[in-house]
Design a protein around this nucleic acid. Structure first.
Length: 807
RNA sequence: GCCGGAGUGGCGAAACCGGUUUACGCGCGGCACUCAAAAUGCCGUGUCCGAAAGGACAUGCGGGUUCGAAUCCCGCCUCCGGCACCA
């Protein structure tokens, strides 16, 4: 009977739902396994690239379940955010309506794929029962000074009409829409992630089950550098300013100093100097230029202030410049410039005719510009002759003794800007009172519900600001008139802790029960796209550390093991609606079934790598499933007879397949598991062609069905049932290979002459070295190749190889 | 510029510890079944020479280590990803 994938897949999807096969409960008697796919934005249409990810997560769920783990694999929706809101602006449909229908469409996809999720724990960030706890979390941070409002130059996307976090600016452009961002001075809400910089950096070392690439990206993003911060006094003035340097050892080479155009001291310094007009003109130009323009300009530009600073180590009087290659946002916004040892300073000094003094001896014959390598310190008085490290230490001691500075650590990481001037997000639960200042909304008034608005269009401030009745409120502290915060939270706040809520999703009185979180956390396997390497994955680590600090989380790191899957591409391009190269899975479901598609998603290539979609591939895996089906349902003519060599060989091959599939699943080498099963099926076909056998074949076939269960669950469950079992295959124990059967009694021994393959012979696996050598020399082919030449050496690696070395 | 990763048939890829290169699938060619086609099954399929037996050459390029290298080392080339005036 032909395999009817349509009705059989629907049948098992219904059974898994009815029997609640994937609902999980805390159970201290079994090891837990918390398995999470990054919760998706509900975009409705999934394409074959998305399904690779969900095939992997479901494979892990089913595999770990069969291995006896108490597996939790929940699913939820990252449902706040711009796409729903932009759709609302176009169509007038409220985002909550469009999001709900998208969620329904996605659930149909997951069901069709046969994905085993615990739907009883479903959550969505736009549900008030969820974002209430976003708001609660915000207040916890606020109460501890870790959420604060500050006016600062921030990234503004003119297209989306909202500010962006640093992490959301990619090469000077909005990560979402690609528009060049502008700098604006605005009062915005920040989370003080910088307080956690050292922990976020150091704990990366523990995450040895994370891809190195992601850890490196986070390290670079945090960007810790050590050095010294010290004070430079302005000549003829009581003013001074702080500078940060990683190279205090080069201070004798300082021939100028530079302030960022936005530095607060600039105005006072230039006032009344001959250079004032020039300087002001430069600052206006620099302020107008976008970051991209500043970067692309190439040659460093700047302007002399007319003022000087005194080098504290030798009293040298050096000019102060303003230049936009110094950034206000890093360090102190001011530097000592040492062109001899810094390439940027070198370029600037060359352009403006400033002196260059080398303080590190370059190697003989060095003809480069600034020398940034290691060498002996020169031209530096009491530092002369010291190595870089010694000179740095000496200088820091000197600064400390003089009271001018100290050793300092600087980070590239900035505080996380979380307020957004958009509608579709969680309202920030703060009230601004003329008398009391910024006051948190009390817990018993949460959630601050997101009100309906007549107009979603962004106008530079949140659409909520137009709702005067909503904005006007009373102060929770003094009862006087006050105004609500109208900005909403970045959706990355929602996603920074949702995996805690999964552990206790219906708790109405608490963000989650710490005991339930303790049972499930940390996530044993987290799967998602590498595009979140420094966004979601960093924020979630930060919030987890905060929850740890306040006693809610038992772990400091949320994701014990991280897997980042590659993309599916088509004609060399990422699938996207805008490119019009999206392949929907529907046709494959219809023609070949979800199981065949799942197998091809596994088979298509190494899981971490991008893979090219091949339209014929699913037909190939469907053919394989068809063969397996026929073998199980059409070969009923078993005969009874004693086991022979052929039977023993089949059983041994089966155990080798179990061993290999188990190893490969453990190592996430999913692409190599499918060929193992295909090869086993080919072996079984050959076996059947030679005449059916009873018990032996049944055992091999059962192993095939078990191994298919996590990969192609529908057909596997159906075959399990049809071969006379009334248990649920999903919860049957995973087969274990018998180590004694894995070893072969005979192997093919390769005979080489001078490393080139010349003959092969079958030998007993326990052949000794002497016999192997003798057998090799007895070979006719080999004696032809030796042909009288002197045998210099014979390398024997019994039982696999003999290599005869001749002159 | 700096930091990662990769380069193996017509294509996706295997080869896990240095030991039979190219498993498995796609594609392609042939055959069987069929009135025919589809589906299915079987056989073949790295390149070159050769009728065959067989041989030579092949893992981006050039060297090296080794009895033996896709794998280790050195130097290049190309592609992909990340960071990029971070002082």
């Amino acid at each position: 009977m032909a395999y009817d994938h349509q009705s059989i897949e629907a049948k098992w999807q219904q059974i898994w739902e009815d029997e609640k096969t994937f609902e999980a409960f805390e159970d201290e008697s079994r090891p837990k396994f918390y398995n999470v796919a990054m919760y998706p934005y509900p975009s409705g249409d999934l394409h074959v690239g998305h399904l690779r990810n969900y095939t992997y997560i479901d494979l892990v769920t089913r595999y770990k379940m069969m291995q006896g783990y108490n597996v939790l694999s929940p699913m939820g929706w990252d449902s706040f955010g711009l796409p729903a809101e932009n759709r609302a602006i176009e169509t007038g449909v409220h985002p909550s309506e469009s999001v709900s229908s998208q969620i329904d469409a996605m659930k149909v996809h997951f069901r069709q794929l046969g994905a085993g999720f615990d739907w009883q724990r479903e959550l969505a960030s736009h549900w008030p029962s969820y974002y209430q706890w976003d708001q609660w979390l915000f207040i916890q941070l606020f109460d501890r000074g870790l959420a604060y409002k500050k006016e600062a130059p921030v990234n503004w996307c003119p297209q989306d009409q909202t500010v962006l976090a640093n992490e959301q600016v990619v090469e000077g452009a909005c990560e979402r829409c690609g528009t060049i961002v502008e700098k604006k001075n605005l009062a915005q809400w920040f989370f003080k992630i910088t307080d956690f910089a050292d922990r976020l950096l150091n704990d990366l070392d523990q995450l040895d089950e994370w891809p190195d690439r992601v850890r490196t990206m986070q390290r670079n993003w945090i960007g810790r550098s050590t050095g010294a911060q010290f004070s430079l006094a302005v000549d003829d003035s009581t003013d001074s300013f702080e500078v940060f340097t990683t190279r205090p050892d080069t201070i004798f080479g300082m021939t100028f100093a530079v302030l960022a155009p936005e530095h607060p001291l600039v105005d006072r310094l230039i006032s009344g100097t001959d250079q004032e007009a020039d300087a002001r003109r430069y600052m206006t130009a620099a302020g107008r230029a976008s970051e991209i323009e500043r970067l692309s300009e190439g040659a460093k530009s700047g302007v002399f202030t007319g003022r000087h600073v005194i080098n504290p180590v030798n009293g040298a009087r050096v000019p102060i410049y303003i230049a936009d290659y110094v950034l206000m946002g890093y360090g102190t916004g001011a530097i000592m410039a040492v062109p001899g040892q810094d390439q940027r300073d070198w370029e600037f000094a060359t352009r403006y005719g400033i002196d260059i003094i080398r303080t590190v001896q370059p190697p003989a014959g060095y003809d480069g510009e600034a020398f940034t390598g290691d060498g002996v310190t020169i031209n530096s008085d009491f530092l002369n002759g010291l190595s870089r490290g010694e000179a740095i230490d000496s200088m820091i001691k000197w600064f400390e003794a003089e009271g001018l500075g100290t050793a300092t650590v600087n980070y590239r990481l900035r505080d996380w800007l979380i307020s957004r001037q958009r509608y579709w997000g969680a309202p920030i639960p703060i009230v601004s009172c003329p008398a009391c200042g910024l006051v948190a909304v009390p817990d018993d008034e949460l959630p601050v519900l997101l009100p309906d608005v007549p107009d979603y269009a962004p106008k530079g401030q949140s659409p909520l600001a137009a709702l005067e009745d909503w904005v006007a409120t009373t102060c929770p502290s003094c009862g006087g008139g006050a105004r609500r915060e109208t900005d909403t939270m970045d959706t990355f706040v929602d996603s920074a802790w949702y995996f805690f809520r999964y552990t206790d999703p219906h708790n109405a009185g608490q963000i989650f029960d710490p005991e339930k979180a303790r049972y499930w956390m940390p996530i044993d396997q987290y799967i998602g796209g590498v595009e979140h390497a420094v966004l979601h994955l960093l924020y979630a680590r930060f919030i987890t550390k905060f929850l740890f600090d306040v006693g809610l989380s038992s772990v400091e790191e949320p994701f014990a093991r991280l897997f980042t899957q590659g993309m599916i591409t088509l004609n060399g391009a990422k699938m996207s609606k805008s490119k019009g190269n999206v392949i929907p899975p529907d046709r494959y479901y219809r023609e070949f079934g979800a199981d065949a598609m799942r197998l091809f998603e596994l088979f298509v290539g190494p899981p971490t790598d991008d893979a090219v979609w091949n339209d014929n591939g699913v037909a190939g895996t469907a053919r394989f499933l068809d063969r397996v089906w026929k073998m199980g349902t059409e070969s009923n003519d078993y005969i009874d007879r004693a086991e022979d060599d052929r039977d023993r060989a089949l059983i041994a091959d089966t155990h080798r397949a179990i061993s290999k599939v188990t190893d490969d699943l453990d190592r996430f080498h999913f692409n190599t598991t499918v060929p193992v099963l295909m090869t086993l099926a080919n072996t079984m076909t050959d076996y059947l062609a030679d005449g059916p056998r009873e018990e032996t074949f049944k055992a091999a076939y059962a192993a095939m069905v078990f191994m298919l269960s996590p990969m192609a669950p529908h057909i596997a469950h159906e075959l399990w049932e049809r071969t006379g079992h009334d248990t649920m295959l999903a919860t049957e124990p995973w087969p274990v290979a018998d180590a004694r059967l894995l070893e072969r009694s005979t192997v093919t021994m390769v005979i080489q002459v001078n490393g080139k393959l010349r003959d092969r012979v079958d030998v007993d696996a326990d052949i000794d070295a002497g016999d192997a050598e003798r057998l090799a020399l007895e070979s006719d082919k080999i004696s032809q190749w030796i042909d009288g030449q002197a045998v210099k050496r014979i390398i024997v690696r019994e039982p696999n190889l003999v290599n005869i070395v001749v002159d």
